Every structure is written in C-alpha cells, then in structure tokens.
Amino acid sequence: MTDNAQAWTVYNSLMVDPLTHTVYSAGEEVHLPEMEYQLLYYFLQHPGQTLSRKTLMLAVWGAPPGLKTRTLDIHICQLRKKLKLGSSLQTVFKVGYKLRLPTNRNEGERCNP
C-alpha cells in the first residue's frame, strides 16, 4: 500500500487506490480486470445513488444509449462475488443498480444481477 492515505477510497472492508488501481478486500489484494475496476470506482464515487443502466454503460464503457447487452450484469455479478458485496450492491428493479451507503456488516457473496 502507498503512504498517501488521502488517495485511498474506503468502503466498508474495501480499500481502493485510484492512483495504482489497487483493490483490497478485508486486507487482501483482489485483482480486478480494468472494466470491473472502472465500474467499482464509479459506484464508489456515487454511493447511495441509484444509477441507471444507461448511465453506467455510458460512463464506464462509453456505450451508446439503447445498446442491448448483458455486459453490465456480468460485471456486477463478478464484483459481488470477488468483493463479497452481496446486497450492498443492489439491483433496483427496472432502473439500474445502487451501491448502498457504507455499513460495518459483512454482506456475503450473493450474486443475482
């Protein structure tokens, strides 16, 4: 970990260094492919906000509106598994997704995109 603690973003047991794209979960380094990292970081910049599929696809992938793909769902599922986010990363029916405001409890490994 770097000495510059101000650069780190913390969410429950997650620590993210945006300078090096390093992610730690419960003190263990977790490798995320670039797009999973970008998606996670976007959620961390907007905690508690419901983000539409359109917003996420445009912000993270630069995808045009109306594009039909399961890419987002698959990446959400992977983040839930790898980072044990469980219900912290919520599906908002017919809208999109939301990263709940931070808590201290362990959310488990549930994966239902």
Rank of each mutant, 00 (worst) to 15 (best):
K98N: 12
P33E: 12
T71C: 00
R100N: 12
V92A: 04
Y42Q: 13
A63N: 08
P47T: 15
L14K: 02
N112G: 03
K84V: 13
L56E: 13
R53Q: 14
L101W: 07
A5S: 07
L83C: 08
T22D: 15
V60R: 02
S52Q: 10
P47N: 11
S25T: 08
L83D: 08
G27H: 11
H46L: 04
L40I: 04
V16S: 06
R53Y: 10
Y24S: 08
T103W: 00
P64V: 01
N112W: 00
L83G: 04
Q90D: 13
T71F: 00
T103M: 06
L39R: 02
A63I: 05
P47W: 05
I76W: 05
Y24I: 01
G66F: 04
I76S: 11
K82Q: 13
V23D: 05
H46V: 06
T50Q: 13
L85Q: 08
E28M: 04
E107D: 14
T71E: 14
E29Q: 12
V60G: 01
N104L: 09
T9R: 09
Y24N: 07
R105W: 09
L83F: 06
F93K: 10
H75C: 05
R80F: 02
M57F: 03
L83H: 08
L101M: 14
V23F: 02
A26H: 06
H46Q: 12
S88G: 09
V95D: 14
